[in-house]
Design a binder for these strands. Structure first.
Ligand SMILES: [Mg+2]
Length: 193
DNA sequence: GCGACAG
DNA sequence: ATCTTGTCGC
């Protein structure tokens, strides 16, 4: 894991999420133009579920479908990848965003809807650092009347840069890449039933 | 030993 | 995350 900024231009930001149908996982991966937030590429893949959900081990459950989607879309089609789940804001500093970042050797950022590890330095409205052991793991952001979201580096990026990138992709609560990937995965699921 | 616990 | 329609509120 590299916790420094290891990227230059950010023109395309990707987002991934996984939905489930019994023992099948549906992963949607979308790539957006960072400036316009328009979708420029998207893929949906399916795999069989091979691991149960166990808190702190989410990566073992979702890495298969996400890796398959990454292989299909091409790792060169984006500069940074946003993952639904935590990065280093994790008891072993190795959440799913970090796991995937190390796997593909690219910058990744974890964006979660609930806090798993660490404490907030202050009220998250409008923003707070996520702290553990006197170290900044990431940030909690609260917008409007929405519940807060939690942002932490996955790989090859600092907490501050991760916050900056994610902020610029937010329209309402969730960053667009994550929101669109989530919707696409669920649409594919509905269409199937 | 008890409680908390991403998706 | 999932089961599951309408409904309240920004
Ligand atoms: Mg998810």
């Amino acid at each position: 894991m590299i916790l420094k900024d290891e990227y230059d231009t950010v023109e395309r930001v990707a987002g991934a999420d996984v939905a489930y149908i019994k023992d099948r996982a549906v992963c949607a991966l979308v790539v957006l133009d960072f400036a316009s937030l328009n979708v420029v590429k998207e893929v949906v893949v399916e795999t069989k579920v091979t691991f149960p959900y166990i808190p702190t081990f989410l990566a073992f459950r979702e890495i298969k479908p996400i890796a398959k989607a990454l292989k299909k879309i091409g790792k060169k089609s984006f500069d940074i990848l946003l993952i639904d789940g935590h990065g280093i804001a994790h008891p072993r500093r190795l959440g799913i965003a970090s796991h995937i970042g190390v796997l593909i050797k690219k910058p990744t950022i974890g964006v979660a809807k609930k806090l798993l590890y660490g404490k907030l330095k202050k009220d998250p409205n409008p923003i707070s650092e996520i702290i553990s052991d006197n170290e900044i793991l990431g940030y909690a952001l609260k917008r409007k009347n929405y519940n807060p979201i939690y942002i932490s580096p996955g790989n090859m990026i600092t907490p501050k840069s991760a916050l900056s990138i994610v902020k610029r992709t937010i329209k309402n609560k969730l960053p667009e890449p994550i929101k669109i990937a989530h919707n696409l995965a669920n649409l594919h699921k509905r269409k199937c039933r």
